[in-house]
């Protein structure tokens, strides 16, 4: 097998994962959320417990008319969903699933790459919000931007702590360095990373940018059909990426019994558990207020992540 074919196959695999896992998370969210609220959720599509609900939704979205508001900035409006979605696809390439090069493409500064590209996704929200020529969209975009600004910092700091501990920025390298007690050592950082990631994805309880009772659907208010579906898909792809990253950075990725042969299964399992937690948090907690969100980021998450960095540094110096 030559190199080009190998790379091509890896990219196709990443694309398939990108198209399947978010739908899986979405379907799980339908069912878990329903049962947590004492409901059944979708039951008809596909026959068995509504397993094909999201496929049916996709067909529905594809049939809908693609409306661009008359006063909107057409090109920016149409481009925004792609800008929101593509970063997550690109990020997925660098997340290692199993040992021995079971990764789309091992990037040298993988951690940096992932965080940098994930931050680009918010540009999609901003473009959508501004180009819609709608005050609710604009408010949503402003909230998105403010939220990203506030939560990018603790996320980076928590990730930096892991990089310090492992002594490398490469994601497979970080997992390779992992020992079980890292999870305890990096616990604060892990919590901060996960929380900040939720806020960056605009998931409840941090979903003020799309708060439907206040600003309709934020930056996505004016979108219909496939473009709207792409925004939704980007949210679920974001969940997959965030959970995968948290697994890799804080939960030891493929480490577990028989890691040599079924390591990839451990990664997927840990990711799935985290995705469940994401859904669980959505069902359990009400939406925060915008100022509470900002206060939480600047007065809780950032000090905690700084404390984590200090702890990491001390332990690192003492043990080396």
């Amino acid at each position: 097998m030559n190199d080009t074919l190998d790379a091509l196959l890896r990219l196709v695999a990443v694309l398939v994962v990108f198209l399947v896992l978010p739908l899986l998370v979405g379907q799980t969210e339908h069912k878990v959320m329903a049962h947590m609220q004492g409901r059944l959720g979708p039951m008809y599509a596909g026959g068995f417990h509504g397993w094909a609900q999201l496929v049916a939704d996709g067909v529905k979205f594809a049939q809908k008319e693609d409306v661009v508001p008359a006063d909107a900035d057409r090109r920016v409006f149409q481009l925004a969903p792609a800008v929101a979605l593509l970063p997550y696809l690109v990020v997925l390439i660098a997340i290692p699933v199993g040992p021995h090069g079971f990764v789309g493409e091992a990037v040298d500064a993988g951690l940096f790459f992932v965080l940098a590209v994930m931050g680009v996704g918010v540009l999609g929200s901003l473009m959508a919000g501004w180009a819609s020529a709608n005050k609710f969209s604009l408010l949503g975009a402003l909230r998105s931007a403010a939220q990203l600004m506030a939560y990018e910092l603790p996320m980076l700091l928590a990730a930096a702590s892991v990089a310090m501990a492992a002594g490398t920025l490469s994601l497979p390298g970080i997992v390779g360095q992992y020992h079980w007690w890292w999870t305890l050592w990096q616990l604060m950082g892990g919590l901060v990373f996960f929380t900040a990631g939720l806020a960056e994805l605009q998931r409840p309880p941090f979903d003020m940018p799309v708060a439907d009772s206040e600003i309709i659907f934020g930056a996505y208010t004016e979108y219909t059909g496939m473009r709207f579906a792409l925004f939704l898909l980007s949210e679920y792809a974001g969940i997959v990426v965030l959970c995968g990253l948290t697994t890799v950075l804080f939960l030891g990725g493929w480490h577990g019994p028989w890691a040599g042969s079924v390591g990839w299964l451990w990664t997927l399992l840990k990711t799935a558990v985290l995705a469940f937690v994401v859904i669980w948090l959505r069902v359990s907690y009400p939406r925060l207020r915008e100022d509470q969100l900002m206060k939480f980021a600047w007065t809780v998450l950032i000090p905690v992540s700084l404390a984590q960095i200090a702890l990491t540094g001390v332990v690192k110096v003492v043990t080396s």
Partner: peptide, 10 residues
């Protein structure tokens, strides 16, 4: 891209 331009757009 991720921060300065976002701030600028903001």
């Amino acid at each position: 891209v991720g921060s300065v331009v976002v701030l600028l757009l903001f």
